[in-house]
Simulated assay, not measured.
Amino acid sequence: MERILVVDDDPNIVKFVTLNLSEAGYRVAAANDGREALQRLKETPCSLAVVDVMMPYMDGLELTKAIRDEYDIPVLILTAKSHIDDKAEGFKAGTDDYLVKPFEPKELIFRIEALLRRYKTEGEADSIRLGNVSIYPDKYTVEIEDKTYMLPLKEFELLQLLAAHPGQVFSREQLIEQIWGVFYEGDERTVDVHIKRLRTRFSKLTADFTIKTVRGVGYFLEPVL
């Protein structure tokens, strides 16, 4: 199971987060400030960092920048601030997600799971081949008979997910969670729209796969052998 780095100068927050992460099956490395956090990362590989903004010596934004310079792991910022400018500064520093205190433990776990899943997917650099179609997750491109195509991000992620699991039926709810995230507030019809766009796009380019509908359930990709 992954190890999570928890960084906060409030020992009660560290204890609270550590307890909930441990109950969820994660291992935890704890630090009380940014400098200690960087030392922890040198000593112990971690899969994700949960970082408080307001800390002595090195605040959470500085720490996030330092992590970005040396490590390829997601960073989730914790803060009592909710102003949009503070959030903007966090994302400029390189954070992947933002959670405002007080928060529910389940929401923290959901966000951590989503970030780990996203990073795992992005790290899968091997291409996916479907006949003459090659999908390159690391470059976000699709090649068909020596021609390269760039897709809108959500279309690409949807195609990649379906192509990585040929024959597996995904419900609309599962696709929303995997591609748009568990906190997406839009309509599930978004999935239908993106599936229609993929079908329209690739029906003109290849016959090596089709995206099929399971009525009342969802969609799956079927390679044409």
Rank of each mutant, 00 (worst) to 15 (best):
R3F: 00
L5Q: 12
V6W: 05
V7I: 13
D9T: 08
P11Q: 12
I13E: 06
V14K: 05
V14A: 10
V17Y: 13
L19E: 14
L21P: 05
S22R: 12
S22M: 08
E23D: 13
E23Y: 07
G25I: 05
G25F: 07
R27L: 14
A30C: 13
L38H: 10
E43W: 00
T44Q: 15
T44L: 11
P45W: 00
C46V: 15
L48T: 13
A49D: 10
V51F: 12
D52S: 04
M55C: 06
L61A: 08
T64A: 14
D69K: 15
D69H: 14
E70R: 15
E70D: 15
D72W: 06
I73H: 04
L76T: 11
T79Y: 04
A80Y: 01
K81P: 04
H83I: 01
D86I: 01
K87P: 11
A88C: 04
A88I: 15
G90W: 04
K92H: 10
K92I: 13
T95L: 02
T95G: 12
D96H: 14
D97F: 02
Y98W: 05
Y98A: 02
L99R: 00
L99S: 01
K101V: 00
P102A: 03
F103C: 02
P105Q: 03
L108E: 05
R111E: 04
A114I: 00
A114N: 13
A114Q: 14
L116F: 04
Y119Q: 09
K120Q: 14
T121M: 06
E122P: 01
E124K: 10
D126A: 13
S127K: 12
S127Y: 02
I128H: 09
K139S: 13
T141V: 14
E145I: 01
T148D: 00
L151N: 03
L153W: 02
E155P: 00
E155I: 00
F156L: 01
Q160A: 07
L161T: 11
L161G: 01
L162P: 05
A163M: 03
Q168L: 02
V169E: 11
F170C: 00
S171I: 02
R172L: 04
I176V: 15
E177D: 14
I179T: 06
F183Y: 11
Y184F: 15
G186C: 08
T190F: 12
D192S: 12
D192V: 12
V193C: 01
K196W: 03
R197Y: 01
R199E: 06
T200S: 14
F202V: 05
F202S: 07
K204S: 13
K204P: 05
K204R: 13
K212N: 11
V214M: 07
G218Y: 06
G218A: 05
L221G: 07
E222N: 14
